[in-house]
Design a protein around this nucleic acid. Structure first.
Lengths: 212, 212
DNA sequence: GAACGAATAGGGAAAAATTCCCGAATGTTT
DNA sequence: AAACATTCGGGAATTTTTCCCTATTCGTTC
């Protein structure tokens, strides 16, 4: 049985590479490509693939947003998120939205193929490197407070921690500054941090940002 | 010729350790000890040692403040600062106040002896680990924007970057919140950072604070 | 010794950010 | 359907931050 895959990434070259990589396995067939979240949604309805492999970071609607839309309309959709972020929080966030796989770009190439095949079979896949971190955190008993955040809160948190100003975040997310400010207050409460300083340290500790 | 040294550190045990360490060299003699900056100043006038070895962090007047006072009255004083901070900025700050040596606690024990002897001979000494960093930064051509800050500005910056609130900093430095706020604005300008977030990342990059 | 610039300290007032409280729309669960 | 969570923002009080300006002290320079 052949697994039909739709590839979603805004970079043409990357799509080509992924296509090569995946099609070298005879049980995988790329039936369509898309370069935006919007198009991914449309294409999904047209070809109804077994698996969608989607980049997390795309201009306009991001991968997670797109995944959310698709899942809303087709709850049985099997989506694998392809991400540059190794941080546990990103994976947690992704899986929370209902995607079935999370693969990092820094992981080994086999992971990607494995993810697609596993997910097609109805299983859930998590990149080895992320799985390692999760396991270690769990065993050490460290909790990840960022998981208390909702998807939207996490997004706001991430942007603020990156150094974006409230105004910028509002613009990027197309919501009012007031809303961002309110989220900010809420987030600080949830994470029990009192200053931007602690916020940055928390973000850094969890690998959302680094010192450059 | 024997080098007469005054030891300044608020911890008795540490002083004892340092005494042992230094006196194992026959050319060094500890002629007095002090456990505060104030006392260091007083003792200096009494015994007029060749070298003062002073801890940077002490309650009340810090090591740098004490060094500044001593140098004001005795400009030829030879002071070696003993510090827990490996960051280049701290060393730069110290040397700017006119001390002749900067030794980190994490460095090798020989550094301390060497520092005292070198400084006694009229030379300037910098810990190997810090020297390494400075050299690397220089060769790579990276500049350290924190050096633009004056001593007071640096102090305010450091405390704020640590997560202290404006109010706390004002209290700690015994100046008004207004002044701290004004410094804060000035510092952000000098470093061209626009948000507390960028400030923290800068501080982290230069090793003033770490992610824990 | 007078003059000058830099560093330190802070007042006043306007602008911006933050907090706290509340309401509404939408979606999800049970 | 009812209960709950999430997302979005308004209103108003409070704090922070900014910008501008003044004063004092010091070390440096002429």
């Amino acid at each position: 049985m052949i697994v039909k895959v739709v590839l979603v990434d805004d970079h043409t070259v990357v799509r080509s590479g992924l296509r090569r990589l995946l099609e070298s396995h005879k049980s995988i067939e790329i039936v369509a490509e898309a370069d935006t979240g919007e198009m991914a949604y449309q294409v999904y309805g047209e070809v109804l693939p077994d698996v969608v492999l989607m980049d997390i970071s795309m201009p306009g609607m991001g991968g997670l947003e797109a995944a959310k839309r698709i899942l809303q309309r087709y709850p049985q959709a099997k989506i694998v998120i392809f991400s540059m972020h190794e941080a546990v929080s990103f994976a947690a966030q992704a899986l929370k939205t209902g995607v079935k796989g999370y693969v990092t770009k820094t992981g080994v190439a086999d992971d990607l193929v494995q993810a697609v095949l596993d997910v097609a079979k109805g299983r859930t896949f998590l990149s080895q490197d992320v799985a390692q971190k999760v396991a270690l955190q769990t065993l050490i008993g460290e909790s990840n407070p960022l998981q208390q955040l909702t998807s939207r809160e996490f997004e706001v948190f991430r942007l603020l921690a990156e150094g974006k100003r409230v105004e910028d975040v509002a613009e990027m997310l197309k919501i009012s500054q007031k809303t961002v400010a309110n989220y900010y207050t809420l987030i600080k409460q949830k994470l029990s941090v009192n200053s931007p300083v602690e916020m940055v340290r928390l973000a850094m500790k969890h690998g959302l940002i680094d010192a450059e």
